[in-house]
Design a binder for these strands. Sequence first.
RNA 1: GUGUCCAUAGUUCAGUCGGUCAGAACGCCAGGUUGUGGCCCUGGAGGUCGAGGGUUCGAGUCCCUCUGGACACCCCA
Length: 420
Amino acid sequence: MTYRSIKGTRDILPSESWKWQRVEERIRKVMERFNYKEIRTPLFEQTSLFSRSIGELTDLVSKEMYTFEDRSGESITLRPEMTASVVRAYIQHNLGKQLPLVKLYYLGPAFRQERPQAGRLRQFHQFGAEAIGSANPDLDAEMISLSLAIYEELGVKEPLLKINSVGCQNCRPAYMKVLIKALEKIRHELSPESQHRLGVNPLRILDSKLEQDQRATSGVPLMRDHLCPDCAAHYKSVKERLSALGYKFEEDGRLVRGLDYYTKTAFEVISRQLGAQDALAGGGRYDLLVKELGGEATPGIGFAAGMERLMMVLGKNSPSDQEEGTTIFIATVDRKSQDWAMKHALELRRQGVSVELDYLGRSLKAQMREADRQRARYVLIIGENELEARRATLKDMKSGAQETTTFEEIFKRVVSSSKA
RNA sequence: GUGUCCAUAGUUCAGUCGGUCAGAACGCCAGGUUGUGGCCCUGGAGGUCGAGGGUUCGAGUCCCUCUGGACACCCCA
């Protein structure tokens, strides 16, 4: 038996990792244009941080977390998302005392023990942003705009924006009563699953994928029609700001977030190019979360996005550019030239040039083939004759032209072309 | 957790009613140029046909179990 990566985890091999690097770079760039600063938090936290913030009864907490006891008996959980950690750090380091509005972004792995499928892994990667310290709907618009700007920057085709308001502690409880009452009335028309959800998470029934549920709930009251004046005004403002920024969006009164901490604005970015797991990003406002986790009552908003899903969408679009090749391959023919190559490869590398040479004792022909495979811009050929004459042959792999000249001249050329 | 489908060389796949079916392409290595790439030609290495049982004179090919994978439900990024 051979070892394999654990179910739902995967290796990102060199054939792919360079693409991830490119994408991550551009994500960071956009984040920074919006003046969000990176935060890196630990991969694991105290279990209660997540259960308290996300909600004890949510599916995520009740059956999807990687929770274990460490050797001291403390309950530890691999982060299933990043918002809780970011808010924890915000409180722990009193970030709100240093700045009235804290804008943070993150990028990294998260863990959820679900059955893997297209766009869903047990170790997956998320990037996202959090802005803590303002309840201003302008900030909601900025946050949504930020998430879309990233997809725009990367050339994602037709990301679909869906928004909704999930209310607040003032209006949601009352609405829930109305909703449950309405659902009770049509209970027998609901799917068995939804009948079960009635007792656990009635909101979920609204976005059930089953035709049966959709039909049955067509006349059921929606949160957006039962918002308190404050929430209604906020929601209206967000929509106005989005329109003013030129964004198209779809109001989805059935959009629900799976995490308990959301209030008011909820949004999702969907891609039709994905499978059943079609959410590229999801987020919303969480005005109660900081207080819930022990900080001073501070409003916040954020979003999280899936890297794997992004990569899937990007893979389906442009044929994408090529990985950069090495700049120069030094081909050698014997021990002496190999010694020379080792020494000068290091020298060139110190000057910022990417250099490769042969470690398999291959023929010159094989080394040339290797250089070609690496898409080297130049091959430097060094042998007995050259060593003696303190010259080497430099071949331009694109044109095929080659010339024998002094080491100094060659290095000058290689270093300058590597900087270009 | 439930369901459906799948499992043959490094990769993508052929293998017809169970009887040379262990193959192709690409990739890899070498040679064709005893110091030179990409194209082309030639040759080579590489598989206990996911694992374990069973049916049969005989099983990649049929049956069972297991493992792994994909997708969907669920859930969500």
